[in-house]
Amino acid sequence: MHAQIVLFDGFDPLDVIAPYEVLGAGGAVAGGDLTVELVSAEGPRDVPSGMGLLSLRAVAALDPGRADLMVLPGAAGRISDDDGEDTVAAILGRSLGTGLAPLLRTACERRGLTMATVCGGSLLLAMAGLIGDRRATTHHLGLDALAEAGVHAIDARVVDDGDLVSGGGVTSGLDVGLYLLERELGPRVAHAVEQLFQYERRGTVWSARGAGRQGVAA
């Protein structure tokens, strides 16, 4: 199984680093059954995060044909600003003006590929018109915007909607990563990584499967 974690100008570092470390550790525990790499739409390059925090190196091009799992982070920026510059929404909007949008569309349409998001990553997909009428979550401050984009916004730590798995605020990247390990490689692998990181997952994973009301819980 191969995972690609997507970088774009203005990404939030913790949205990337948390699932990257969790998935990488899970791959090691599972004897190499999971590999993970950082990618960008433009290919190998140093990609600056938002707020001037740091840059990370994309080692390969985003390639939906190679990925079984793709993780999309949100942006690091101001929540609101009079001139609209360097806000989370502005950064996400700029990213859609690059070669990222068509690649994400291909990824979302590819059978067998699971798209996972952390924080504003689901907003990015919603702004691109890729997850309308799907169930997803994001940072609690973005739930209304997610709903306005036609998504069934769920106020949960992690939401599993089949081939779309989304997480809430930035630290939920740990929970998303561990949940994906459990779902794809089994609970023993996820438990081993939990012990290694000394972190216990938070909250119940909301899933479209099972009994109970299947509507919006925002």
Results as ranks from 00 to 15, higher is better:
E194R: 11
G129A: 10
S166G: 06
V158A: 03
T138L: 03
E182Y: 07
T87Y: 03
A101V: 10
L104E: 03
E148C: 11
L96Q: 03
A107V: 06
R110E: 11
L181G: 12
D163E: 08
D175E: 07
V176I: 04
A107H: 04
L174A: 07
E194S: 08
V189W: 05
P102V: 02
R94E: 14
C119D: 06
D133M: 09
V158D: 01
L164S: 02
A153V: 09
L100K: 00
L124Y: 07
D155S: 10
L113R: 12
G173N: 06
A107R: 00
H152N: 13
L123E: 09
V189M: 06
R134G: 01
R135L: 13
R135V: 11
A101T: 09
A153R: 06
E194Q: 12
S166H: 02
L185K: 07
H139M: 07
I131Y: 01
D86W: 09
A107M: 07
Y179Q: 05
R135A: 14
L141N: 12
A149Y: 10
T98M: 13
G97K: 08
H152W: 13
E184M: 14
L130N: 04
G168L: 10
D86R: 15
E148Y: 12
A147L: 12
R135Q: 14
P102K: 04
R188P: 04
A156H: 08
V165K: 00
A153M: 09
T114E: 05
T98I: 11
A126C: 10
T137M: 02
G186S: 03
A101M: 12
R94A: 15
R188N: 13
V176R: 04
E148K: 15
T138F: 03
G132K: 13
V158S: 00
R188A: 15
T87S: 05
A128V: 00
P187V: 06
S166I: 09
Y179P: 03
V151K: 08
V118I: 11
R111K: 15
D144Y: 08
T117Q: 02
L92P: 08
A128R: 01
V193G: 02
H152C: 11
S172Q: 02
A101E: 14
L180V: 06
G173D: 05
G121H: 11
A126H: 10
E194W: 02
A156K: 08
A153W: 06
R157H: 09
V170G: 02
T171Y: 07
D175M: 01
R134M: 05
L100G: 00
A101L: 14
S166A: 07
L181F: 10
A156R: 10
R105N: 07
H139N: 15
L185F: 08
C119E: 02
L196G: 13
G99N: 01
A145T: 14
R94Y: 11
L196T: 13
L164D: 01
E148G: 13
L146F: 11
L141T: 15
G129Y: 08
I154T: 00
A147D: 14
G93K: 13
A107K: 03
V189S: 00
S95M: 07
T114M: 10
V193H: 04
V170N: 00
L104P: 02
D133N: 15
